[in-house]
Structure formats: structure tokens, C-alpha cells
């Protein structure tokens, strides 16, 4: 029997083996500092990808997340630097705006039965557009609290540290795992992604669940935007361009099915780290063009999709094709 966690195990195995190979080549690699940086550098990506995992599990997609991150950074910069808001108030406003934005997209998707791809693509343009309306420049954020927050870290011996963004990522990860597997909402997401009609006839509240999952994705993109603005110390309307594709990649490498119903939050986390690992490797190497990151990730994505397809066929029983010619 093929174990149900096999796709997850394969992804984690790739991550571990990849890390060991890097460590063999570069003696400095296997250090808490590198691991800490890996988490910090990819925190915003990871947080966004976790939201994307839920959306994809439910059988949808959210192309607006990168734009929402960009919008959030600009909103924060404008509120704090030009409006004189306290950062915590600005954070709350940004989270609220992002969540409402997601909820609106979810409602449109459900009520008008529109494909999520189209609705969130439109959402992407709207969010990016609103960021540009606020400002086209890169606005630095110089509030003292930003400096303090950036110093918050759990330090280890030998120079490693767990920064605030990394901590946020790990907390979100833990909550997300619980949400996916120990709440009714999580079960409803898997149900919706498995088969919408059956889920509805089994009493899953389809409307509520659809709106909730896009709200959650918006909220997490907003949180990622906050982390991103902490990390870069600025608000920029072009920030995080293309991040929606990186997150989808992480979700797929993590073992989820793009058609919904199959996948794990932990897998996505591993998928994010694998991408980060490739990037770190290329930085360590120093001679390779950073475009090799994209090529390596592309190849990996392709291999993973093939692998997953094979596993799934074996997992659900017969591997045969349907009868239709």
C-alpha cells in the first residue's frame, strides 16, 4: 500500500537531501545562521504560500497575492510616513483592508459563479493599481519602531538567530496545520476541492467556505506585506511582483494538486524552503547567474508534477485511463 503522506515525504526528503548536498560542497552551509536566514528571507513568501495552499486545496487559485503584498507595503508607508499613524494601527488597517479585499473576491466568485482565475486576476490589477494611485515612488519607512522590530530576534550561539519574520512564519505554519486538520473548516476545504457538487449535497456550507478561504488568503498576503515592509524598510508599488507564481510553485512542489482536494500545508512549507535553498546555493556559489534559480525551480517543478501524477494514480487505486476514446 502506498502511504497517503508519500508526496509530502518525498518533498521533505528532497529538501533534506538538497541541504546535505549543499553542506557537503560548502562547509559553512550547515549552520544555524544559514537556516535562520533561509527562514527570514522566505518568511513573506512562506506566509503567502500557506494562504495559497488553502485556496488551492479548495479547488481555487488566488493570483492577487503578490499585488496585495505590494499594496500593503505602500499603504503602510503612506499611513506611517505621511499620515503619521502608529505602526500597530497601520498594521491593523492593512490587515483589515487585505482581508476585506479577499472577502470581496470570494463573494464575487461564489455569487456569480465566476472562475477564480479570472476574478483574482482582476483583483491583481486592482490591487496593483491602487498601490500606484497611492504612490509611484519607493517610500522609505523610518519610524523607530521598525528598527526595534527588526532587532527582535531569538539568538543562538554561533551567530544564528530567529528573526521576527521567521517567528511569524513558524507561528502561521503551526496555526495553519491545526486549521487544516483539526477544524471543520479545514475538512470543508478538502471537501470543496474534492467535488463541489458532492460537498454541497453533503451539507458543506459552500458560500461561507469560499468567502472564508479567499479572506484568509487576503489576510495572510496582508501579513506577508507587513513582514515584507519590515524586511525592506520601504513601501513600493512594484514590490513582490510575480510572487503569486512563486507561491503556486511552492504549493505544487509541496505536493498539492492544482485541481484541489489533495495537499498539505507542511508540504508547501517544504516547497518554499526548497526554493530558498536553491537561491542560497546560487548565492554561495557566486559564479552562477541568478537566473539559474528560475531554471532549477522550473525543472524541479516539472519533475514534481510528473511524480505527483504517478503517485496519485497509484494512490487512488487503478492507474487505468477512463473508457472514453
Amino acid at each position: 500500500m502506498i502511504h497517503r503522506f508519500l508526496p509530502l515525504i518525498v518533498t521533505i526528503a528532497v529538501l533534506v537531501v538538497g541541504f546535505l548536498l549543499c553542506a557537503l560542497q560548502f562547509p559553512n552551509f550547515a549552520s544555524l545562521r544559514v537556516v535562520g536566514n533561509l527562514l527570514t528571507d522566505n518568511a513573506f513568501l512562506g506566509i503567502t504560500a500557506i494562504g495559497m495552499t488553502f485556496v488551492i486545496l479548495s479547488g481555487g487559485i488566488d493570483l492577487s497575492v503578490g499585488a496585495v503584498i505590494g499594496f500593503t507595503t505602500v499603504l503602510l508607508a503612506v499611513l506611517i510616513e505621511q499620515g503619521g499613524w502608529d505602526p500597530p494601527a497601520a498594521f491593523a488597517a492593512a490587515l483589515l483592508a487585505a482581508a476585506l479585499f479577499g472577502a470581496a473576491m470570494g463573494a464575487i466568485i461564489h455569487v456569480f459563479r465566476m472562475p477564480p482565475f479570472i476574478v483574482t486576476l482582476a483583483g491583481m490589477f486592482v490591487a496593483r493599481g491602487m498601490a500606484f494611485v497611492l504612490t509611484t515612488d519607493s517610500l522609505p519607512i523610518n519610524h523607530p519602531l521598525y528598527g526595534e522590530l527588526n532587532d527582535v530576534a531569538w539568538r543562538f550561539d554561533g551567530g544564528g538567530k530567529l528573526s521576527l519574520p521567521a517567528m511569524v512564519l513558524l507561528v502561521v505554519l503551526a496555526l495553519a496545520v491545526v486549521l487544516a486538520h483539526w477544524t471543520r473548516f479545514g475538512a470543508n476545504l478538502y471537501a470543496l476541492g474534492g467535488n463541489r457538487q458532492s460537498a454541497e449535497l453533503m451539507g458543506v456550507p459552500v458560500a461561507r467556505t469560499t468567502v472564508a478561504v479567499y479572506t484568509l488568503s487576503g489576510l495572510l498576503a496582508g501579513l506577508a506585506g507587513i513582514v515584507f515592509s519590515l524586511y525592506t524598510g520601504a513601501g513600493y508599488s512594484l514590490a513582490a511582483t510575480g510572487v503569486e507564481l512563486d507561491t503556486i510553485t511552492a504549493v505544487v512542489i509541496g505536493g498539492a494538486q492544482l485541481t484541489g482536494g489533495y495537499g498539505y500545508v507542511l508540504g508547501t512549507f517544504a516547497g518554499v524552503l526548497i526554493q530558498g535553498l536553491i537561491q542560497t546555493y546560487i548565492t554561495f556559489d557566486g559564479t552562477l547567474s541568478s537566473w539559474w534559480t528560475k531554471i532549477a525551480i522550473g525543472a524541479l517543478l516539472f519533475v514534481f508534477i510528473l511524480l505527483q501524477k504517478g503517485l496519485l494514480a497509484a494512490w487512488t487505486g487503478r492507474g487505468g485511463e477512463p473508457a472514453e476514446a
Partner: peptide
């Protein structure tokens, strides 16, 4: 209704 092939038997029985 064919229930949900991607969920486990137990999850199908107790969904919701």
C-alpha cells in the same frame, strides 16, 4: 452522490 474520493472513509462519514 459519490461522496468525496479524496477524503478518508471516516472523514466522509463525519464531514460537517
Amino acid at each position: 452522490v459519490n461522496l468525496l474520493p479524496n477524503l478518508s472513509v471516516a472523514e466522509n462519514l463525519f464531514l460537517g
